[in-house]
Computed example of a mutant assay.
Amino acid sequence: MSEIQTIDYELLFQHAPVGMCISERRIIRSANRALAAMFGCTTEQLAGQSFLMLYPSSDEFERTGARIVPIMNVNGCYSDERIMKRANGELFWCHVSGSGLVGDDPHAAGIWTFDDLSAKRPVTAQLTPREREIAALLVEGKTSKLIARQIGMSPRTVEMHRAKLMKKFSAATSSELVHRLLGVQQQ
C-alpha cells in the first residue's frame, strides 16, 4: 500500500477545468483561473468584487439574487443557464450552479461553478434585460404561465416578450425559438 498523501485543495481549485468561485454575500472571495479566463480578467481582479460585475445589468443581478433564494432554501443548491457579461462587455450564455454553505441563508456563503456555453450557443440577437431573463426561463422549458408566476408579471406580458423574441430570432414557433436560443440547428 502506498502512503496517503495530503490533498492540496487550493491546487485542485485553481486548476479545475470549470470556472469556480467561493462567495460571501454575493461577493467573490476567491476565484479560480478558469473563471478569470472566462470573464477576461485575473483572479486578483475578481477577488473582493460583487457578482454584479458578471451580469449584463444591475436589474438582472438583483432579480437573479431574489429568484435563487427560495430555491436554495428548499434544495440547498441552484442551477440555471443565463446570459452573463465578460470584462470587455461581450455577452455570452453560461451554465451557473451553486451550493449554499450556510443552510438557512443562501447568500451568506457559497461555492459556484460557471461553464461557458458560447461555443454551442452564441448570443445572436440584441436583447433587453427582461428578454434575456425570459429567454433563460424558456430554455429551461417553462411555460409563459410559469415564467409569469416566477418573475411576477402577467402571462400576457410574458407572451408579448416571447413574441418579440420570436421576431428577433426569426422563429415561427415557440419550439423553433427555444432551438434558436439553444443554438440548435433545425433540419
Rank of each mutant, 00 (worst) to 15 (best):
4 I>F: 13
7 I>C: 04
8 D>S: 04
10 E>A: 04
12 L>W: 03
13 F>G: 01
15 H>K: 02
16 A>S: 05
17 P>N: 03
19 G>I: 10
20 M>L: 14
20 M>V: 05
23 S>E: 09
25 R>V: 03
28 I>Y: 01
29 R>A: 03
31 A>M: 05
32 N>P: 13
32 N>C: 09
33 R>E: 13
34 A>Q: 01
34 A>F: 03
34 A>R: 01
35 L>I: 04
36 A>D: 04
37 A>T: 13
38 M>F: 01
38 M>N: 09
39 F>R: 14
41 C>Q: 08
41 C>W: 15
42 T>L: 10
42 T>S: 15
43 T>A: 11
44 E>M: 08
46 L>Q: 09
46 L>F: 05
47 A>G: 05
48 G>F: 11
49 Q>G: 00
50 S>W: 04
50 S>R: 12
50 S>I: 04
52 L>H: 13
53 M>L: 09
53 M>G: 03
57 S>P: 02
58 S>G: 08
58 S>K: 05
59 D>G: 11
60 E>F: 02
60 E>L: 15
60 E>Y: 02
61 F>S: 11
61 F>H: 11
63 R>N: 11
64 T>G: 05
64 T>E: 15
66 A>F: 06
70 P>G: 08
70 P>E: 13
71 I>P: 00
72 M>R: 04
72 M>V: 12
72 M>I: 12
74 V>K: 13
74 V>L: 11
74 V>G: 03
76 G>N: 02
77 C>V: 09
77 C>W: 03
78 Y>E: 07
84 M>I: 13
85 K>I: 09
85 K>T: 07
88 N>S: 14
89 G>F: 07
90 E>G: 08
90 E>C: 10
91 L>C: 12
92 F>N: 14
95 H>A: 12
95 H>D: 07
96 V>T: 05
97 S>H: 00
98 G>F: 00
99 S>V: 13
100 G>E: 03
102 V>D: 02
103 G>Q: 07
103 G>H: 01
105 D>G: 08
107 H>R: 09
108 A>C: 07
109 A>W: 02
112 W>A: 05
113 T>P: 01
114 F>S: 04
116 D>Q: 05
116 D>N: 15
117 L>M: 14
118 S>A: 14
118 S>H: 06
119 A>K: 06
119 A>Y: 00
123 V>N: 12
125 A>I: 04
125 A>P: 02
128 T>N: 00
130 R>Q: 12
132 R>Q: 14
132 R>I: 12
132 R>D: 10
133 E>G: 06
136 A>E: 11
136 A>N: 13
136 A>M: 14
136 A>D: 12
137 L>S: 10
138 L>I: 15
138 L>H: 09
139 V>I: 15
140 E>I: 05
140 E>L: 14
141 G>V: 15
143 T>L: 08
144 S>L: 08
145 K>G: 04
145 K>W: 06
146 L>P: 03
146 L>M: 10
146 L>T: 14
151 I>W: 03
151 I>E: 10
152 G>L: 10
154 S>N: 03
162 R>C: 08
166 M>T: 04
170 S>V: 08
171 A>G: 06
173 T>M: 06
173 T>C: 09
174 S>M: 03
175 S>W: 02
176 E>I: 06
177 L>V: 12
179 H>P: 00
182 L>G: 07
182 L>Q: 15
183 G>L: 07
184 V>Q: 11
187 Q>A: 11
